[in-house]
């Protein structure tokens, strides 16, 4: 167990180093951060001063070492746009993205799991075909477009829900719904197919032969066995959302999470804030991955943590 956590943490470090290297290469070697950040008409002195301030006048290896030091201290410097520590901004925005992800993925689970199970009970039946077609449709609609349609419907036509910002709890409904739909579609398909697989396993027949009630066999025996792929997908959806896919929903609904902040930082060419956001995302992804491995072990005792 200890070795397992150690291995995972090492892998996490490799991931974070990989991200570091890519961001380093992209921002320093391919692009010119000064050109990106300063206005075109700025003088040579201004440029040099700025370079010095960021430590860009030093040789590349020194820059890399300094960059790694920044990461180790979780201090990327002040945001160029908001003139305050970048990590402070990230910690302010992160809870909003986490809330959106939690409500969205939670909503998807609440509907997807029962729906998937019911479809799996009678594959090819009317309800099953409806579910399959519905989820294909959900998978095919672009998320940003669904968000816009929700705004048209609920805010413009029906005038019942707010569409932008995060002022009141009801502000989360539309973005969370938009977030939930593609996840719901993917999850329903997966729950359905893995439940169909499990219901055909011999142990299900034995469980029925033991006279156990239907609900217990389907919702207990089969569902727990199907739990592994289902949990994998749920974890994957959370990771996706934190790894940047929340950007789309946050942009459409002006939900001020880290996704929207990332886009704004990119628009304002605030490389320091962008770096802070990317690293936070990378660390969250690594942590969630480790947590998922423990959940797997809880579900399936056969797994060995290696």
């Amino acid at each position: 167990m200890g070795i397992f956590i150690f291995k995972r943490l090492i892998h996490g470090l490799i991931v974070i180093l990989g991200v570091t290297l890519i961001v380093f290469v992209v921002t320093r070697m391919v692009g010119d951060p000064v050109k990106v950040m300063l206005p075109l008409e700025s003088t040579q002195e201004q440029r040099d001063a700025f370079k010095k301030q960021l430590g860009l006048d030093r040789p590349i290896p020194v820059q890399l070492v300094n960059f790694l030091k920044d990461i180790a201290r979780l201090d990327f410097g002040d945001s160029l746009w908001q003139k305050r520590p970048a990590m402070e901004i990230v910690f302010e925005k992160l809870p909003l993205t986490l809330a959106l992800t939690a409500v969205g993925v939670g909503l998807a689970c609440v509907f997807a799991i029962p729906l998937g199970i019911i479809s799996a009970l009678r594959p090819g039946g009317a309800l099953d075909r409806l579910t399959v077609f519905g989820s294909l449709l959900g998978l095919s609609m672009p998320q940003f477009w669904m968000g816009l349609l929700f705004i048209l419907l609920f805010a413009v036509q029906l005038r019942i829900l707010p569409t932008s910002g995060s002022a009141t709890p009801s502000h989360i409904i539309l973005p969370a719904l938009t977030m939930a739909l593609p996840t719901l579609a993917r999850l329903v398909m997966l729950v359905r197919s893995s439940m169909i697989d499990e219901l055909n396993q011999p142990y299900v027949k034995t469980a029925f032969a033991r006279g156990l009630p239907f609900v217990r066999v389907v919702g207990g025996h089969a569902l727990k066995n199907a739990g592994l792929p289902i949990m994998t997908l749920i974890g994957w959806e959370v990771i996706r959302s934190l790894a940047g896919y929340s950007v789309v929903v946050e942009t459409v609904f002006a939900w001020p999470g880290i996704g929207l902040t990332a886009i704004q930082a990119i628009e304002r060419e605030d490389l320091i804030l962008i770096q802070a956001i990317v690293f936070t995302a990378a660390i969250s992804v690594v942590l969630i991955n480790i947590a998922m491995d423990f959940i797997y072990k809880l579900i399936d005792p056969r797994l060995k943590l290696t």
Binding site: P202, K205, A209, G211, K224, N225, P301
Partner: peptide, 24 residues
């Protein structure tokens, strides 16, 4: 038959490897 099976009639299957639920 649902009341009877497992209680008054029970069954032993061919393959004990797959007939027991692996996660319980």
């Amino acid at each position: 038959v649902r009341q009877v099976r497992g209680k008054e009639i029970s069954m032993i299957f061919q393959d004990p490897m797959t007939s027991l639920n692996p996660v319980f």
